[in-house]
Design a protein around this nucleic acid. Structure first.
Lengths: 244, 244
DNA sequence: CGAACTCTTGACTAGTGTCAAATTTTGTGG
DNA sequence: CCACAAAATTTGACACTAGTCAAGAGTTCG
């Protein structure tokens, strides 16, 4: 359980990755109505077609964003880790074009869109940070398009494992060469345009070749350099250092 | 050839799709240094890794954005039509994460990033419009992820044809049920995660079934309703009406 | 402790890729 | 504006990655 000051600190840490905030900015963030909310795994935070008035900021746990075809096929189009905003685009887009769903039990700060809008208007540096976070998100979508469109199954899986490792690190945790990946094979498949059965085969292949180790849902990257090479992973698209 | 006033008018039209500008906003846009530039087909406007100081606004022709794997595989991750900004994200992201390439001969307004930044700071409604245009772009990436990840070849091609038709209409042209699609089969394949040979087969299939007609590179949508159904096309993700 | 998910594996299938060659279209220099 | 070279399209034969189906084993959670 976090109190308001802890939540504000998390928000400041996240926004500081994108722009150098000043003291008044931090003050304005602390002045927000910060409500913590715990949500169970596999719960909808938001649904396509809705017009949400609140925006979640992930404090702990994983959230994913999904879109469905009429036939009921699912694509997971994004993953949010602690320190990420979920659906910040709803600040200016009325209608959601996708669902946001919890992957695990999740702790979020439940922010009012109206307050965030006001903050963006009043505080140029915060606005800039929020804008940049959306621009970086778009860059991730582009990399995922390359991944799903032009890499084979082994490369895609390796790429996702690299990305998660690096994003967890940047979220302010120590480098996570070993982390709990709370996605089922079906969910990984939906994120990569593959089937659960094939994900299983590929993961076993990566394990057999000594690139990773698995125990339950914990993944350990044994050989970062080689996994990176297999994945064709280059972290440029994550735009670390955007706070310039 | 367009003069400065025509270019300003185009910019105002585009931004007005995203926010209702006032007279002072329009004045500020007219005050920009508006340089028109003509670029040949298949030319790079920007390259991955560069730090561009200028941003293109498409006046005529098509531009696409691509990313490459180390193996040299290409994914086309986006398409810009007249009225779209190319790489507006460079306002706040220093380093490009992808290439921008002309598909056809193109007419652009060559805008200085510094001037656009200043405009965004000074004019709240213009800023809002620019921000929203980026948010909608991200929504397109998500839909493309669904398309490439979870639709089969026929559905993907149909979806792209629907999207282009609708986007051309919204760019201020009459509804383009018949339009010139200046992409080679290889480029369509790169945009959809397929090969040129397969694109050819799918297009012929759609034609045989009477959904479209082709003559050279002109595409005519014969049966919009059925193409839309095949494509599972729902224009929600384009966020028309975002100007609320 | 049992029910409901997940994971794993094998056998088989299907959709899309690869290769190659003929044909058509496009672009360019004279 | 023509002629030609380069690029793009078309087609068929064949290959291969990933999908489907199914059933048993393992795991999670109420």
């Amino acid at each position: 359980m976090l109190n308001g000051a802890d939540i504000a600190q998390q928000l400041i840490f996240t926004l500081s990755r994108f722009a150098k905030l000043d003291a008044a900015d931090c003050e304005a963030i602390r002045a927000l109505t910060l409500e913590e909310r715990e949500i169970t795994a596999s719960a909808y935070i938001n649904r396509e077609g809705r017009q949400p008035r609140r925006c979640a900021f992930v404090l702990d746990g994983f959230v994913f964003r999904q879109k469905l075809t009429v036939a009921g096929q699912r694509a997971i189009v994004g993953l949010q880790v602690p320190g990420d905003f979920v659906d910040l685009q709803n600040l200016y887009l009325d209608e959601s074009d996708h669902d946001a769903v919890t992957l695990t039990r999740v702790l979020i700060a439940d922010l009012a869109i109206a307050e965030l809008c006001h903050l963006a208007e009043a505080r140029p540096l915060i606005r800039r940070a929020m804008w940049i976070s959306g621009l970086i998100e778009a860059s991730l979508f582009r990399e995922w398009l390359l991944n799903v469109g032009r890499r084979d199954a082994r490369e895609r899986v390796a790429h996702l494992l690299c990305e998660i490792s690096v994003r967890l690190e940047s979220a302010g945790r120590a480098r996570e060469l070993s982390y709990d990946l709370p996605m089922t094979h079906e969910q990984i498949g939906d994120a990569l345009g593959l089937t659960a059965v094939h994900i299983n085969r590929v993961l076993k292949g990566l394990e057999k070749d000594g690139l990773i180790r698995r125990q339950k849902r914990e993944v350990t990257i044994n050989d970062w350099q080689q996994l990176r090479r297999v994945a064709d992973f280059n972290e440029r698209y994550l735009h670390f250092g955007a706070a310039g």
